[in-house]
Design a protein around this nucleic acid. Structure first.
Lengths: 244, 244
DNA sequence: CGATTGATTGAAGGTCCTCAACAGAGGTGG
DNA sequence: CCACCTCTGTTGAGGACCTTCAATCAATCG
């Protein structure tokens, strides 16, 4: 959990080279990026809705999510994030945050000054391309979530969301699919899927009974990822090989 | 409905200059873009899911939507589109279409070769910026739809979706908010909101009884946009002034 | 002019929500 | 070091929102 400089650069380089072909100078430009690191507890509001921070939030360790709320105050989680993700990349072009970011677990964050990242994107085309592609894959994931929340029943919906989470975690090098630990609470699963925590609880119990999840030590793990994908109707094409 | 060259350039320039400051050379580059136009009937599948077309689809007249389906075949509409929208911009960076595009009404389409658009985006930074910003606003709209489908009840949800549609139509210069004509069928409203056509029908009748919509000649119109926004809890901030 | 599309209505039912209570783990403060 | 509180998960009962199925009607289309 300690944040050394190499680890931060590794996280970012690893992510970007999955998105575009980087040459030596691109890597140098990434390694030259200024940043400051910070370790924060779970539930930490890294970006506030409506703010205009002049820095970007790179997640180096731990998990986070983006969220928005209705007028009445019910919360919707929009995406989950993990190592290597810049959780507020859209502010390269849109200064005002239209949603918040919060950590799920204790997390290590690297703050990158907005102008430095923007400059890298502009001066190194491959970096700009990687970042743009990242935002486009983000959008593709949002589209899948609209489908997920709009048209799948609770069990399928939860399974699908978890499959994506694992697929992206595997791509980020956080471990194999089978055995992957799920860090989010049942309430967070509910907020991500448009369900109540109570109903999520009952569906997770079904998934455990089906043998695709297992809970021990107060933590759920995926024990049969392939079957979970089958239950969720998960097809990773929409991740566009950013999580192959 | 006839597609003359100026009208196409107008549609695209009008859209892009809402997204970035364009100078004379930028405008020239836009005006120099090659394209072919086509007028297609309603229900025309402009882009097929899974295809890799080498051209972009600029909507010059009429309406369209993007859609995805679950394994079981239920369809979800992901966004609506209108004059000036390039409905498949993400393929600048992502070659394979992960969703389809279909017209709602008879429509005029301008097909722009992918390499020409990509070249314009790269050689003219302001154009690249406008296009990137457009995709990011797109993503912001997707996020709002996740919230809409996940956390609002049927009546509010439909009202919100219609408010956005009108707001974007007004921004595109298609008319004033009050009196704005809704071109989509009730089934399409259902597919966009994750509801059945039957329930949409009942909710629309409520909205008519509330005096915010009126149907005549088999077409619904918004007659009290401001109140519709109030019902839908609509706040246009997430459109980021692309539709002020 | 039959067939199709879109809108409408009614009845019945199911998925998911709301409300409520409780248990266990962990953290906190006296 | 224990009492207390909070957070997360769990269970049960009842109900509401929305779906499903079905039939009808008007308008458009080939």
């Amino acid at each position: 959990m300690t944040a050394n400089r190499d680890d931060v650069i590794d996280a970012l380089t690893g992510k970007l080279q999955r998105l575009a072909t980087l040459d030596k100078d691109d890597r140098k430009a990434i390694a030259a990026l200024p940043f400051t690191t910070e370790t924060v507890p779970s539930g930490y509001p890294a970006v506030l809705e409506g703010a205009r921070p002049a820095r970007h939030c790179l997640l180096v360790d731990g998990y986070a999510f983006r969220h928005r709320s209705t007028r009445e105050g019910s919360r919707q989680i929009l995406s989950f994030h993990m190592r290597g993700d810049i959780v507020d990349l859209e502010r390269l072009m849109i200064p005002k945050a239209d949603h918040g970011v919060q950590t799920i677990t204790r997390a290590t964050i690297a703050w990158i000054p907005a102008d430095a990242l923007g400059k890298a994107a502009r001066s190194r085309p491959a970096i700009g391309e990687a970042l743009w592609r990242d935002t486009l894959i983000d959008a593709s994931i949002f589209r899948e979530w609209i489908l997920n929340v709009g048209r799948r029943d609770a069990r399928t919906r939860i399974a699908h969301m978890l499959c994506e989470f694992v697929a992206r975690g595997v791509a980020a090098g956080l471990g194999p699919g089978d055995g992957f630990e799920l860090p989010m609470t049942q309430e967070q699963v509910g907020d991500a899927t448009g369900l109540t925590a109570v109903h999520v609880n009952r569906m997770l119990q079904q998934l455990r009974a089906d043998g695709v999840l297992a809970r021990d030590n107060r933590v759920d793990r995926v024990v049969h990822w392939k079957q979970l994908c089958a239950i969720g109707g998960f097809d990773n094409a929409y991740l566009h090989a950013a999580a192959a």
